[in-house]
Design a binder for these strands. Structure first.
Lengths: 232, 232, 232, 232
DNA sequence: AATGAATGAGTGTTCATTCAT
DNA sequence: TATGAATGAACACTCATTCAT
């Protein structure tokens, strides 16, 4: 009996497993995102990743495994890339805005895959669905820490941090989920900027608002390239 | 070539078509919501709705038709029930809060079906997906009108109405989409109340805030039964 | 949860179920007997029985069901045909010999299928294997009753009835199992006659032996057609 | 074109071939016996015998080769071990009983494998099936010689030796084939003893019966350990 | 001599759809 | 109008066998 996060492979060399799985998942994620999980066949994944059908089953137990790792990958990117983007950013308001900006820009990059998260998590075995949900909560907690630091620093007023953060997350996801509507009105920078005005700015104290204004002056309303430049 | 919204039926009596389709869709929606679109079979729908497989094909052209009308039904409920709940409510802040409350309570009632909207819209033929998206926008416009009335009445400050409304809608949908996380922290009333504090209150003018305070006094923080009482 | 002997059918009309199953089993039994259970494919059964693949799954739950009913059919023939052949035969020695003769002639008719019983019972789900074994024991009990009547009538000496009967049954089965060796030395009549000499005659009392001699005079050493004539 | 009994190996050192094949066959026989030939995979055999998949194909041409040698091994044990057990046993009745006892005790030891003989001989290529059948006949001939010696020595009356021997063999096999029924009624010693009463004793002359009685007195109804003691 | 990753034809099974009644 | 038996293409998955190392 294996734990739900475990995906069995018949092949023992871990380097090879990593490599092959990456190639197969690349193809699978693309196909899942374009056509959906059920419509995508193992044949298609095999052809798209340039391996035989049999090989796929040497590296994944079944189709559910492929979906699970596909989704896990997206969640893992949030979880590792957002902290990476926060490195070197120290001011709490700056950090919070940067986190939102980072989240949105990852979503933008993975647009279709981010939608897949909503379409196909329900196709997962229940125990794995829970794992994906926990991963989402872990990323939320990253943002919660940013919010709390603002509050603790007297930059933001007291509020329901959990609810605010989830609303921020929904905002980031909506860039993918409602892209068909948003792309007619916003580019990514404008969208993030609008989100900050809506979901962060109103809760900032005078001191917090000043920090945000300074940040905006430096980074040009988040319309430029990712927030790296803003740390200068 | 038929228009995307048209669903062909081999049966001519329109009353009968309406009646039969309703019964079949009731069963289909339930099954789709519980198990997903692809996992649900026509034979299951036939059995659950108490008609023969053949009959289903007399009232729907194919499985895609059933999904389309299933999703359309949900969107239609938003579009007709929210205005119905607003009837007799006149104060703009009251109307906006009532609309959000109504939206959330419909989502609560249709929880799994609301999720289905996110899971399965992508399984629709492209032209029909667009139709569903337009229906969503129509409902959004209902809320936009409420927001605009607040702004025009000097109860709310100027802001990006489209973005605020979509954020309100995401908030309502999140009650279904993230129910696994929310139900541990909120009941429906508390959730709506939290949403108003987060997404409406901060943008109200002094006058608007007073109106909200009065509304809250009358309706007990939206923790009671649906907003009917608040109209008195 | 269904009992092991139950085989589910999607079709409700019992007459049709009987009819279709018969046709499919005819083809399946033939193919199983010729090529073995695992080597026979559902495709082959479909083609041989002149129906579509899908239809087979309307009348049988899975391949195991088909094997189970195939084997059950053989066992059922023993269980119903042996008593039928005994009808009108009254002398205990006569009855015992007729039973053996009947058993052997059914085995002869179903030669390959009788072998299938030995090849493929082990491929059955365990609960069904038990059911097949019980059916075999029920047929054995038919013979045991014949032996007991001989003993009770003073025609046969006391002995281990269970063991004798199973040895008689093995003898009948051996006509199928070892037919490759037997057919070079015996025709069916001679085989049965030899079996009676070996497994019945030695245990008869003087009175029993006289009865056997008289039986032999009448039926020509069991070399003629089935035992019907011997009852005259 | 190779003769049917030839099993090709890519490895030339005959000692190594013998050794490796033995190890692989040990594992294969066990798996075949437990799960059946078709259900057992080469990968399972490889894992169970502690060698690589590739290595198996260095010592066996294909899966059929493995089955053939597996079955041959069982037949070889009968053919070599029964004579070994007869060594030093001189009285014809003693020898016949000892042979049956030896046969049964080998069957007992290889119970599942003995059943495999019946399940899987039909899965063999026809020419090899014949080889297995000939091996069975050779063992039968061992018993036939014992019977003939009894008859020639005036210890047993004239009878169809071939048929009696095959019936004795079926009796021995039945200990495996019908073990599910027999084990509730007999232990091995009781079973053999019952077989002798049924299939040997009735055909013994007065002199033969006396010999059997004496044998029984010495060996305690065959309920003790293998017949070694009876030779004293 | 020995490995085990790689192959892909072939398997049992499903299910949207049709059509004779 | 209504039925449900019948179809068969398509699917996920298996496993004997090969071959580069």
């Amino acid at each position: 009996m294996k734990s739900p996060e475990h995906v069995a492979s018949v092949v023992s060399d871990p380097k090879l497993v990593e490599e092959r799985r990456a190639g197969i998942l690349d193809a699978a994620v693309k196909l899942f995102a374009e056509n959906g999980y059920y419509v995508t066949t193992i044949q298609q994944i095999a052809k798209a990743s340039g391996v035989s059908i049999g090989l796929i089953y040497q590296y994944f137990g079944d189709k559910d495994d492929i979906l699970f790792l596909s989704l896990k990958r997206v969640l893992d990117r949030y979880e590792t890339e957002i902290p990476a983007r926060l490195e070197g950013v120290s001011h709490p308001v700056d950090r919070l805005c940067t986190a939102v900006w980072a989240y949105c820009s990852i979503v933008d990059e993975l647009r279709q895959v981010a939608v897949l998260t909503y379409r196909s998590t329900g196709s997962l075995r229940a125990d794995r669905r829970a794992l994906i949900q926990q991963a989402e909560l872990r990323t939320n907690r990253l943002l919660e820490r940013c919010v709390r630091d603002c509050v603790d620093g007297g930059l933001m007023r007291q509020l329901d941090e959990f609810l605010l953060v989830y609303q921020l997350v929904m905002f980031c996801h909506a860039w993918a989920l409602k892209n068909w509507a948003m792309r007619e009105r916003f580019d990514l920078g404008g969208y993030v900027s609008g989100g900050i005005s809506l979901l962060i700015e109103p809760f900032l104290t005078t001191k917090g608002k000043a920090a945000l204004a300074s940040l905006r002056r430096r980074s040009g309303d988040f319309s430029g390239p990712p927030a790296r430049g803003s740390a200068g």
